[in-house]
Write a protein that binds this DNA or RNA. Structure first.
Lengths: 159, 159
DNA sequence: GACAATTGAATAGTTGAGCTATGTAAAATA
DNA sequence: TATTTTACATAGCTCAACTATTCAATTGTC
C-alpha cells in the first residue's frame, strides 16, 4: 500500500513531465472557465461545496483539509456560505466547540447551476471530440479522483 | 436569471458533470502540488514559462493571452522574471514599442527543476497506477492541450 | 475534582496575485 | 501632418489566501 521508495528515488522524467503538463493545462482550463463564466465565487468555495456534495456533512476543520485550504480560510468560506444560505451550521452534539457543516437546498441548486454554466462554456471546446475521446477524459478524471483522495495516506503534506 | 444566448443547445448533463468534475479535481491537484512543494512562485508564472518553452519567444501581449492573464499582470510577471534572469527581453526590430520575450538558460533550468519537484511530490500519489492507466492520463492531457489551444477560435471570451 | 495540555473554530493582520482604468509613446492610417 | 490605433507601463484597488494568535471546550493526569 505504501510505496515509500517512490518518494526517495527520483521520479522518471516522463512522469514528471506528464504531471507538470497536467498541472499546467488544467490550470489553464480553470482560468478559461473562470474568465468565460465571469465567475465571482472563488474556486475554493466550489471545491468546498463539491466536497460536501460528495461526502456529506462534516466539521469545519475536516472540510478545510479536504478542500486543501487553511482552517481560517475555511472559517471565512463557511461564514460566506452561511450568509447566502448555501450551507447550514449544525451544532455538534458531542462537542460544543464544533459544528457540522451541511449543504443546504440552496447550495445544492447553486452547485448544479455552476456545473451547468461550466458545461455551457467549456462544452464548445470539446465539441470536436468523439465518444472514445470523451471516455478517455472521463477515465482520467476517475483516476485523478482516486489519486487525490485524501483518505488515501500517500498524499504528502507540506513540510 | 441566466441568459443563454450564446448557448444554443444545452450541453448534456453528463458533459457538464464531466467538465465540472475535471475542473474540481484538477484544481485540487494544483492545490496539493502548491502546498506540498511549498511553492512560492505563482502558477501563472510557471504557465508563462511553459508557454515560452512550448512556443518559443513572443510578444508580451501574446504571452498574456496564451497564459490567460491580463496584459498588466503579464507586465508584472515579465518584470519579475527579468529580475531573476529567467527570461530575456529582446527589442523588436520591427516595432520599437514591442519586446520579444524569450526563455533564458536560467529559466530553462528553473522550469525543469519545477517539473522535477512537482514530479517528486505527485508521483507517490500515482504509484499504484499501471502503464495503461498512466497512458489514459497522458492521452487525456493531450486532448486537453488540443481543446485549450488558444489558436483554436472556439474558446469563448468573457462578455 | 482540579489543572494542564490539547483541540476546534474565530479573529487580527499581512501578503500578493489578479483586475480595471489610464498613461505614454510608437505605428499605422487618413 | 493629424488622428487613431496599438503595445506596453503605471496606479490603485480588491479579494483570497496565509500565519500567528486567541478563546473556549474537551481530554488526560494526578
Amino acid at each position: 500500500m505504501n510505496t515509500l521508495e517512490a518518494t526517495t528515488t527520483a521520479p522518471s522524467p516522463e512522469l514528471s513531465e506528464l504531471l507538470s503538463d497536467l498541472v499546467s493545462v488544467t490550470h489553464r482550463l480553470t482560468r478559461i472557465a473562470a474568465q468565460a463564466t465571469g465567475e465571482s465565487t472563488s474556486p475554493a468555495t466550489w471545491r468546498t461545496l463539491s466536497v460536501l456534495s460528495s461526502f456529506g456533512p462534516m466539521r469545519l476543520g475536516e472540510l478545510a483539509k479536504q478542500s486543501r485550504v487553511s482552517q481560517p480560510t475555511m472559517t471565512k468560506i463557511v461564514a460566506n456560505l452561511n450568509e447566502v444560505e448555501w450551507i447550514r451550521r449544525i451544532a455538534d452534539v458531542d462537542d460544543a466547540r464544533a459544528w457540522q457543516i451541511a449543504l443546504a437546498p440552496k447550495g445544492v441548486r447553486a452547485l448544479q447551476d455552476w456545473r451547468d454554466r461550466l458545461g455551457s462554456v467549456l462544452a464548445p471546446m470539446f465539441s470536436d471530440l468523439d465518444g472514445a475521446e470523451l471516455d478517455v477524459i472521463s477515465r482520467a478524471v476517475d483516476l485523478l479522483h482516486e489519486a487525490t483522495d485524501l483518505r488515501d495516506d500517500r498524499i504528502v503534506r507540506a513540510a
